[in-house]
Simulated scan of single mutants.
Amino acid sequence: MTDSHKVAIVTGASGGIGKAVVQRLANDGFAIVAHYAGNPAEADKAVSEVVERGGRAISVGADIANENAVRTLFTRAREDFGRIDAVVHCAGIMPLKPINLESIETFNKVIDVNLRGSFLVLANAVDTLGPGGRIVAFSTSVIAKSFPNYGAYAASKAGVEALVHVLANELRGKGITVNAIAPGPVATELFMKGKTDAQIQHLAQLAPLERLGQPDDISGAVAFLVGKDGEWVNGQVIRVNGGFA
């Protein structure tokens, strides 16, 4: 079966990396289910661009931390396209707060969306994908840096990496790969928010390549993992970061 018959769910499709993943996988022949949480206009725009180029795509809203909402996302994908071959879980949040008692609500929210949400997406993928299926979650290269104020975010993504390693083993014999992408600093709204120009420039210089990543840098790595050349890569965290960590 050629990629022109394959279907991918991309969560967080209204964000910078998610939109790039939607466009790349659509260009590679996948029909796309573009998930969004709070920005339907951007998800609809991504879908329209795919359709204008002759591809197939729909947008579906869902609270990624809500069990019923995630189940409905997968049900909608099967109803519209008949199958699901790849699940790329880009959705997440990154509020920055210190580790103190005043930050507990932020911590709870980050864990709820980033870690519980990842568990729900991965669990639904297990129930949906067949042999040849691909699951790609998202971690972060900031885990290795331990920057102040990144405690909740880094903890949530370290949990995602653990889920990926365990799930790859749990799916032994199923013919389904499970991997994660761990980007370094990428020039997206999520990354830029709350940072000064000086902070952004400093972070851009940390990698030996001395630049911020671009969404297309990340979408290319995703395309590799869900494409034919990635079929022997399993249980890995791919740090796409220009040497950042």
Results as ranks from 00 to 15, higher is better:
Ala77Asp: 07
Ala91Asn: 10
Thr106Trp: 01
His89Trp: 01
Val70His: 03
Asp63Thr: 10
Glu42Ser: 14
Lys45Ser: 12
Glu67Cys: 00
Asp44Met: 04
Pro40Met: 07
Glu42Gln: 13
Glu79Tyr: 07
Val50Phe: 03
Asp80Val: 14
Asp63Phe: 01
Val70Asn: 06
Ala123Phe: 00
Gly117Glu: 07
Asp85Pro: 00
Ala125Phe: 04
Arg76Tyr: 03
Glu105Ile: 04
Val121Met: 12
Arg53Glu: 06
Pro98His: 05
Ile84Thr: 15
Asp85Gln: 10
Ile99Pro: 00
Val51Lys: 10
Ala123Ser: 15
Arg53Ile: 00
Phe107Thr: 06
Val70Ser: 06
Glu79His: 13
Val113Cys: 02
Thr75Cys: 06
Ala41Pro: 01
Arg78His: 07
Ala123Arg: 15
Ser118Glu: 01
Phe107Met: 06
Asp63Met: 05
Ser48Gln: 15
Val47Thr: 14
Val47Arg: 12
Ala77Asn: 10
Glu79Met: 04
Lys97Val: 14
Ala91Gly: 12
Lys97Cys: 07
Leu115Arg: 02
Ile93Ala: 04
Val51Arg: 13
Thr72Ile: 08
Ala125Met: 07
Arg116Pro: 00
Ala69Val: 09
His89Asp: 11
Val50Leu: 05
Asp63Ile: 01
Phe74Cys: 01
Ile93Gly: 09
Asn100Phe: 05
Arg56Ser: 11
Gly82Tyr: 11
Ser59Arg: 04
Gly82His: 15
Ser48Ile: 00
Ala43Lys: 07
Ala62Tyr: 02
Gly55Glu: 10
Ser48Trp: 01
Asn108Thr: 11
Arg53Tyr: 02
Thr72Trp: 05
Ser59Cys: 08
Leu73Pro: 03
Glu67Asp: 13
Ala91Val: 11
Pro40Tyr: 00
Asp112Gln: 15
His89Lys: 08
Cys90Tyr: 05
Ser59Glu: 04
Gly117Thr: 13
Glu79Leu: 08
Phe119Asp: 03
Val70Asp: 03
Asp80Cys: 04
Gly82Arg: 14
Ala77Lys: 12
Lys97Tyr: 10
Ile99Cys: 04
Ser48Leu: 09
Asp44Thr: 10
Ala65Glu: 09
Val110Arg: 06
Gly61Met: 06
Asn114Thr: 12
Gly55Ile: 08
Glu79Lys: 14
Gly61Thr: 13
Val110Lys: 07
Phe81Tyr: 15
Gly61Arg: 02
Arg78Asp: 04
Lys97Gln: 14
Arg116Trp: 02
Phe81Val: 13
Thr75Arg: 14
Arg71Gln: 13
Ala91Gln: 04
Arg53Asn: 12
Ser118Trp: 05
Val87Gln: 11
Val70Trp: 05
Ile104Trp: 03
Asp80Gly: 02
Asn68Leu: 03
Ala77Glu: 04
Phe107Trp: 15
Ile104Tyr: 12
Thr75Met: 08
Ser48Glu: 14
Phe107Gly: 01
Arg76Thr: 15
Ile99Lys: 00
Leu73Ala: 03
Arg56Phe: 00
Thr75Asn: 15
Leu96Met: 14
Asp63Pro: 01
Ala41Asn: 08
Lys45His: 03
Glu42Asn: 14
Ala41Met: 09
Arg83Tyr: 12
Leu96Phe: 08
Glu105Arg: 08
Leu115Met: 09
Glu79Val: 10
Ile58Val: 13
Gly117Ala: 11
Pro95Asn: 09
Asp85Tyr: 05
Pro40Arg: 13
Ala65Tyr: 01
Ala91Phe: 09
Gly117Met: 08
Asn100Gly: 11
Asn114Phe: 09
Val87Phe: 09
Val110Trp: 07
Cys90His: 08
Leu122Ser: 11
Val87Met: 07
Ala86Phe: 07
Ala91Lys: 09
Gly54Asn: 02
